[in-house]
């Protein structure tokens, strides 16, 4: 590295500060979720699991958690299938306008979330998708697709094109080649894309607020209505659940990355 030991120490110090700044607000919510009181007081003066008990028993919370899990699972499957197919198609072809198509797939990452939300809302109103599970799945899939495409496309960079020829020469059809050669090699990328897709859907809030109805709410939507309408510390328990699920899944991505690049 460049710079003397002093500069290095300063940089490390700044790094630690930024890290703490990023993480601490999030971690405040964890102690509150274990608070024994019915308030947001920090630090809590007593401890208990009441908030979790409420979260996992009161039907409005529990239902929204199950809705979120179901939608995230369906989105994961749909986005992974479509995104993998798209990445394969982009990988095998080169034509004019190819770059523009690449850009199109990345659009949901670049276009402000609120704009995507309004656009989907306008479209869904006409199609009658507002407040339906299908509406959530379609909306979240739009947001999740780029993550799958990016991860699978990166994995496909590791597949030597000559392997396809070798497999064909040895008697494998196109499908057999995909199943037995391509897929096993890109599996870590597909897995990472799938996990990203799940997390994208599971903690999505902006677009979901537009798609939701009082009868069908995902967990983040339920949390949002909770903070705007009531003072209910159960939200701290909900936040901790979302935090744990998302962190665990993204940690899994990091693990698969490490394993696939020895």
């Amino acid at each position: 590295m460049t710079g003397g030991p002093t500069l290095r120490r300063v940089l490390v110090g700044i790094g630690i500060l930024v890290g703490v700044w990023l993480v601490v607000p999030t971690l405040v919510v964890v102690p509150i979720s274990f608070s024994g009181e019915d308030s947001f007081a920090f630090p809590p003066s007593s401890w208990g699991l009441e908030h979790y008990a409420t979260f996992f028993t009161e039907s409005s919370w529990l239902t929204s958690l199950l809705v979120s899990l179901q939608i995230a699972l369906i989105v994961t499957v749909v986005a992974t299938l479509l995104g993998t197919a798209a990445a394969l198609a982009l990988d095998r072809t080169s034509f004019r306008g190819r770059g523009a198509l690449d850009g199109l797939f990345m659009a949901p990452l670049i276009i402000p979330g609120i704009v995507v939300a309004v656009a989907l809302y306008a479209a869904f109103l006409g199609w009658g998708l507002i407040g339906t599970p299908l509406g959530f799945v379609v909306a979240h899939t739009v947001l999740a697709l780029p993550f799958v495409v990016v991860n699978v496309a990166a994995a496909l960079q590791n597949v030597d094109p000559v392997l396809g020829r070798a497999a064909a020469g040895l008697g494998a059809s196109g499908w057999a080649t995909f199943r037995q050669v391509t897929l096993p090699i890109i599996r870590p990328g597909v897995l990472a894309g799938a996990l990203f897709a799940f997390v994208t859907s599971f903690d999505e809030v902006v677009v979901s607020l537009f798609v939701q109805s009082p009868q069908l709410q995902t967990l983040p939507v339920r949390m949002f209505t909770s903070v705007t309408n009531e003072v209910d510390p159960t939200i701290a328990a909900a936040s901790t659940v979302v935090l744990v699920v998302s962190t665990a899944l993204l940690g899994l991505v990091a693990l698969t990355r490490r394993k696939s690049t020895p």
């Binding site: 030597d160 000559v162 392997l163 020829r165 070798a166 037995q180 050669v181």
Partner: peptide, 10 residues
């Protein structure tokens, strides 16, 4: 049968 310069092993 086909053999390539780059081996092309899976």
């Amino acid at each position: 049968g086909m053999v390539f310069q780059s081996y092309a092993l899976f």
